[in-house]
Write a protein that binds this DNA or RNA. Structure first.
Lengths: 213, 213
DNA sequence: TAGATTGTTAATCGATTAACAATC
DNA sequence: TAGATTGTTAATCGATTAACAATC
């Protein structure tokens, strides 16, 4: 199999921002953009943008710049958008329901197909016409039968590791973790942590240490 | 005024994780920890841990290690915990309500005092006994009167910049933004973005580019 | 052809890691 | 005193920025 070069995580984290501004340019019917113009939009340096984009093939053209449609499609392809990803949520509390109803990623092909909870009062409830809270006991079987790609953890930290273990055993390839804990997973599964309190602490530190020049 | 050394953002982002593991050690009644032990817990190298902690004063003692209580208290003080931070949420949809009810940061002194929305069906509703959805039109005055520290944006992206402008004009010192857009703010305000779809895209990229060694 | 802008290499900067002297 | 472990400097590594040749 062809050996792909390894792209650093810093580059990957910039891709969604490129994508966002390219979307804007597209909806403004702008068909061409230079690394300099993208720099003004995104705040990254033109040099960095050219270097980033070059990792993924020849999107640009000397003397011209980048074609917006081509680059947008290219970045989508690099990220892996353009297909559907099926997701389930463990924990049907406030956060789980909010994530289930969030519609930004939904538009790009990410579909929450079910929520799971242990609480008998919640099991059976409908979140929407097409989305229901199911019994946590049935989660593993459901994931296996429905080829779920991503498992989302929206519980307290005490339950998080056990849920992750079930997710991995059932065959998800990615975990999106909202519980405030570091989870152990096997090598073949990816994890993205959203440690909300950690982020809030970082904000507060910066608020308190702002140097008023 | 004494000139504080500027601590890099990379260091700051590690502090909450140190804090989390120190909490665990405390609740296990362990009173001493070495950089090597902390390294095993956090995954950072012992060398990095020693260098990180040294930025903030002499928490350690040669030949002994770090006293857990002292270090925990020290990190809390560095972050700026130990006082109360008042927050309001703009946007009382699913996400706004989930953030309002989230109790992790609540325990550390972060209090959501009100939610604001434009929707007349929501205005006046109670989220909890002590927490209500108020009229968006009154938000600026409320923030000024109640000395709100942090404004949280839980709306669609179209409203986000206007809300941020009101937050800043009313005197918040920090903004926690959940809208999928980059917001412009004056120099004296700090912002922390939680771009959920960006994070999901990053997860998916990694899932698709996992090298199975 | 001249002008513009990329692709790409080289230089710089910053963050991480290694090493070891200081010291409890 | 000997052993352990920090504090701190130096070396390394990786990411960003600058520069410019290639080329549209």
């Amino acid at each position: 199999m062809k050996q792909k070069p390894i792209i650093s995580n810093a580059v990957i984290r910039r891709l969604p921002r490129y994508r966002r501004y390219l979307r804007e340019l597209r909806s403004s019917r702008i068909d061409k953009v230079s690394s300099k113009e993208l720099s003004e939009l995104t705040g990254y340096t033109a040099s960095q943008i050219r270097q980033d984009l070059n990792h993924f093939g020849d999107f640009g053209q000397q003397g011209y710049g980048y074609n917006v449609d081509v680059l947008y499609a290219g970045i989508n392809a690099v990220i892996g958008l353009g297909r559907t990803y099926k997701m389930v949520i463990a924990g049907a509390g406030n956060l789980g329901r909010a994530i289930a109803n969030h519609n930004y990623y939904y538009k790009t092909g990410f579909i929450v197909t079910a929520l799971f909870d242990k609480n008998p009062d919640l099991i059976g409830r409908k979140i929407r016409e097409d989305l229901q809270i199911l019994d946590y006991a049935d989660m593993k079987e459901y994931i296996e039968k429905n080829d779920i790609d991503i498992g989302i953890i929206c519980t307290t930290k005490d339950a998080a590791q056990e849920i992750a273990d079930i997710f991995c055993a059932a065959g998800v390839k990615g975990i999106w973790n909202f519980a405030p804990i570091d989870i152990e997973i096997p090598d073949n599964v990816c994890i993205e942590n959203v440690h909300l309190s950690d982020m809030l602490y970082s904000l507060v530190y910066r608020m308190n240490n702002k140097t008023n020049e």
